Amino acid sequence: MRAILSKTPGGPETLVLEERLDPTPKKGEVIIDVRAVGVNFPDTLIIEDKYQFRPDRPFSPGGEVAGVIEAVGEGVKGLFKGDRVIAVPGWGGLVERLAVPAATVIKMPEAMSFEEGAALIMTYGTSYYALKDRANLQPGETLLVLGAAGGVGAAAVELGKAMGARVVAAASTNDKVEFALDLGADNGLIYPSGQMDKAAQKELSGEFKLATGRDGADVVYDAVGGDYAEPALRAMDWNGRYLVVGFPAGIPSLPLNLTLLKSVSVIGVFWGAAVMRDPAAHAANMADLFRLYAEGKIKPRVSRTYPFEQAGEAIKALGDRQAMGKIVVTIAS
């Protein structure tokens, strides 16, 4: 089989396409004939050794896949050859065939395409865990989403609306804001690109307050970080919850006196670790997401697909923050 491999730390240009031996299923495993691979921000980090996990090389990036079960190992129950499934290995997915523990596999709804299946779990799983379990978002509350056109940000916009919140979408271009409004956001604003001085940050905070209303945001979903964090924190309401999701613009330094003055909670969101620590809660959340999908309240937006041979270009496009919604790598059957 063919595999996209990271053999040395570096950017997408360091990835290589090689032939590897086909996997065989061990006890409790299934082999997936991979048809689509979702590209996520951790893929840009893990190949540079900047992610929380550092797998031994050579390894394949690719944290979520959709495909068809090709073989079933000893002791596996309820899964059969030919089943259409989703799996979230964390990494290793940019291969033509993948061995995964059967317990981690989720059957796909018949109406769901492989591209949608590969674009669902990590972004919506992260955002639902953040909004439901970490922030306890309530109907009628105001949610400010930073990076609202990216994978997790777009999912947060849709889920926020599905949960009954008023959603304000913030992004770096008019096209991205329009994209978020099409997803259902109630209001949107464009924030400046690049670094900001204190005067620019103060001005942005005023824009956040204007967009979210007199009292400010009850919940901030920050998938951007950098100089955008403090203005968003300053624009929060009393007892607000600030969700720390990601840092493509850099790791911010927050003035903690603001959390005291507004009784604001700063809350970390590490979905991958939460899944491992509480599989039952994760399964319940997945059931909710599939229900919302069936009801038409959420739908993965795959804005761009790349063939398997161009997987490095797909990761680069995400790292360059060009994407709106999800980028997916497809593999011909």
Score class of each variant (00 low, 15 high):
M1E: 06
R2W: 05
T8G: 00
G10W: 11
R20Y: 02
R20L: 08
R20A: 00
T24Q: 13
T24C: 00
T24D: 05
P25Y: 05
K26N: 13
E29L: 04
I31T: 06
I32E: 03
I32C: 04
T44Y: 07
I46T: 10
K50Q: 15
F53A: 13
P55T: 02
S60I: 05
G63P: 11
V65F: 03
V65K: 05
E70G: 11
E70S: 14
V72S: 04
G73H: 10
K77E: 14
F80V: 10
I86Y: 01
A87Q: 09
P89E: 02
P89I: 02
G93E: 06
G93W: 07
A99D: 04
V100P: 07
P109L: 02
A111C: 00
L120Q: 05
I121L: 06
Y128P: 04
N136W: 05
N136C: 08
Q138E: 15
V145K: 04
L146A: 09
G147E: 05
A148L: 06
G150N: 04
A165K: 09
A169C: 10
A170L: 07
V177C: 12
A180S: 15
L181I: 10
L181R: 15
D182S: 15
A185P: 13
M196I: 11
K198R: 15
K198G: 00
F208H: 11
K209T: 13
V219W: 08
P231F: 01
A232V: 14
A235H: 08
V244R: 06
F247S: 05
P248T: 05
P248E: 06
N257G: 07
G268H: 06
F270A: 13
F270P: 00
W271L: 05
G272F: 06
A273L: 12
A273Q: 13
A274S: 15
M276S: 14
R277W: 02
D278E: 12
D278N: 15
A281D: 03
A281Y: 00
H282N: 15
H282P: 06
A283M: 07
M286R: 10
A287G: 08
K297W: 01
Q322Y: 01
K326H: 13
V329Q: 11
T330M: 04
A332V: 13
A332Y: 13
